[in-house]
Simulated assay, not measured.
Amino acid sequence: MTLTPATAAVRVRRAELSDLDDLVALEQATFDSDQISRAQFRRHLDSDSARVLVASANRRRFLGTAMVFFRKGSRVARLYSIASLPQARGKGVGTALIEAAEATARQRHCHMLRLEVRTDNHSAIRLYERLGYERLGPVKKRFYEDGSDAFCYAKTLD
């Protein structure tokens, strides 16, 4: 199933087991800490409480990924992780992944999507704010494995 892309060139779909090597490689290339392991990706691909999405220019050109978590009985979804290849940044990949994450949350009858972002990740913060996310509460001190702080953002979904 292809979800609505931000641009015609970027397609977002549910990740498959055959994407596992690409997911792990992107995770390792993107994050120095707080990496999702191969075993965790494998578990989330089969989980009813998670949805792993991949963005590509075509079936072979892997550009990025996002992971959304759902809690039973909750109408709030969590954008747990989002990553794109460095050469794909600024080309609509992040927007396409976030829009697909929002669509997935709506399909699961969630009314809100929440996320955390490093306080020093200015490009991600600009993207989230441009897409209508609002900062909530105080800074989450030492939220990340490396001791970095996080902002919490949320968006009400219609």
Rank of each mutant, 00 (worst) to 15 (best):
R43W: 05
L79D: 02
S56G: 15
F62Y: 14
G92A: 05
E16H: 13
H109P: 00
G90D: 14
R51C: 15
F70I: 02
S47G: 11
A66F: 01
V54E: 02
D19P: 14
A55H: 09
Q35D: 01
H111C: 10
D21T: 13
I98N: 07
R13H: 05
F70Q: 05
H111S: 13
A55C: 04
D34H: 05
D46W: 12
S84E: 15
F70Y: 14
A100R: 06
H44G: 02
V24I: 10
V93D: 08
D21H: 11
V76E: 07
L17D: 15
L97K: 15
R59A: 09
L63P: 12
V54M: 07
R38M: 08
D46I: 08
R11G: 06
S81W: 08
A101N: 09
L23C: 06
E99V: 10
A66L: 03
H111G: 13
V52S: 07
D21P: 08
E99W: 11
D19M: 14
I98Y: 07
S81C: 01
V12Y: 03
R71P: 02
T95E: 12
D19E: 10
R14T: 08
S74I: 03
F62D: 06
P86R: 15
S74D: 06
V24D: 04
A39P: 00
S37L: 12
R14V: 09
A105W: 04
G94Y: 07
T30G: 02
E99I: 07
T104I: 11
L17Y: 12
A88L: 13
H44W: 04
F41R: 04
H109I: 00
A25Y: 05
G73I: 12
Q40S: 14
R71C: 15
R106W: 03
Y80W: 00
D21F: 13
L17M: 08
Q107K: 12
A100M: 02
V12W: 02
D46Q: 13
L45H: 09
D19F: 10
S49F: 07
L63F: 12
A39G: 02
L53I: 06
V24E: 08
R59G: 03
R60Q: 04
E99C: 14
A66S: 03
L45I: 07
R71Y: 09
F41A: 02
V68A: 06
S37N: 06
F69E: 06
Q107G: 11
R61I: 04
A50Q: 13
